[in-house]
Computed example of a mutant assay.
Amino acid sequence: MTDHPPTRVIYLGGLGRSGTTLLERLLGELPGVVALGEVVHLWERGVLAQELCGCGAAFPACAFWRAVGERAFGGWTTSVAGRVLTLRRRVDRTRRIPRIAHPDLAEYARAYRTLYAAAGAPVVVDSSKHASLACCLVAAGVNVSIVHVVRDPRAVAHSWGRSVERPEDGRPMTRWSPARTAVHWTAQNAAIELLAARGARVIRVRYEDLVAAPVATLTRLARGLGLAAAELPFVDGSTAWLGPSHTASGNPMRFHVGRVELRRDDAWMSGLAGRDRRAVDALTWPLRARYGYRSAA
């Protein structure tokens, strides 16, 4: 692995289906910022499985990622990916967050630090979401700011219950029950709260605020992150225009180019059964209340 100058990392944390891909794509439109996707899955889905980059090309054929691999590791190889995946199984575990110290932590974090720097941008966005990876990066001294993305847990539970095909191969994306989603929502958000309490740089963004007032929310976030965002020419009211991206993994929106309407998705209000709403409410209190989400009627 080749050493490169340090790069600023914006790490999007939280539970999947909370709007992280949308926020990543919007941040990727800011000057000097490059969105990388869910880097935690790059090693398996990109290098080994050769899935599609956000630009539509297969990972090995993408000029952007080919250049990153050459600069970082002298090229993408199964041995590099296999080593990082082995380290991930040893180090990057949610149960280790209270005490992340591990003999292999430095080597594991160095793989990410090297990859981030090889992207060739002053600031990169990693939307891996996992609180455990964020903890590893913070503990290893990576220059990382965590953007804690939260969404109403009932909306998240409804989204995880939907049947959605993966554009890469047509297979269904993972589905969870409302109760399982609620447990994971609480665990991931509580873990990021713990990182903030330990002194990590954390800024919280609610999905509902982002889609209701995208310009104001993005401007506030950019200022908090120290990014230049005096103007947001790619956002007009509730409409955004997205250019091509090179996100290595993430939900289907990573492939979208062009106009996108920023509308709040409240399908859960009619699509989530009353018993499931009450179960999610019970399993996500008190963090749900802390983030401003009221109990189900």
Results as ranks from 00 to 15, higher is better:
T114M: 09
V183A: 10
A111W: 05
V149E: 03
T2Y: 12
V123L: 04
R278I: 00
A109R: 02
P31D: 06
V280T: 02
W241K: 00
H184Y: 10
L42A: 15
V257P: 10
V280M: 05
P167E: 02
M269T: 15
V47T: 04
V144Y: 06
H246S: 04
G250W: 00
V202D: 03
L48W: 11
P214H: 08
D236E: 15
H246L: 03
S270Q: 12
T247C: 05
S159E: 05
L287Q: 09
A296W: 07
L52Y: 15
L283T: 03
G32A: 04
G13C: 11
Y293C: 01
T2A: 11
G237R: 06
A101K: 05
P103L: 06
V80R: 13
R8F: 07
D104Y: 11
G54I: 09
E261S: 12
A118E: 02
G141A: 10
Y291R: 12
R88Q: 12
V150C: 10
Y11L: 04
E38M: 14
A155C: 12
G54V: 14
S295Y: 14
S18R: 11
L272N: 05
G170N: 09
A49K: 06
T77E: 02
V147T: 04
A101D: 13
M253I: 09
A187M: 08
V150P: 05
D152F: 02
V142T: 15
C55D: 12
S295I: 05
E107H: 13
G16A: 13
M253P: 03
L133G: 04
H148Y: 11
G274N: 05
T114K: 12
G14S: 10
L195M: 15
V39K: 11
D92A: 09
H158T: 04
L218M: 08
L221E: 05
A134I: 13
S245C: 04
V47G: 01
A111D: 10
P286R: 10
A140Y: 12
R96N: 15
L42R: 14
I10T: 00
I10D: 02
E29L: 09
P122Y: 13
E44A: 15
D265W: 00
W65A: 01
I97A: 08
L283R: 09
T2P: 09
A131W: 11
A119L: 01
V183S: 06
G120D: 03
F64G: 06
L225W: 14
A58Y: 14
R264M: 06
R17Q: 08
A117R: 01
R278G: 11
A282G: 15
T86A: 14
A101E: 13
V205C: 01
R89G: 15
D126G: 06
S163L: 07
E261I: 10
L52V: 12
G19I: 00
R96Y: 14
T217Y: 07
T20G: 05
E208W: 03
A196T: 02
A157D: 11
A222E: 07
L36H: 13
A197R: 15
I192H: 11
E168C: 09
W185T: 07
R220T: 03
P233L: 14
G224D: 01
S18G: 14
A187F: 03
G82S: 12
G170L: 08
A212D: 01
T86P: 08
I203D: 01
P103F: 13
G237K: 12
W65T: 00
A200K: 04
T219L: 14
G32N: 10
R175F: 02
W76E: 00
C62A: 04
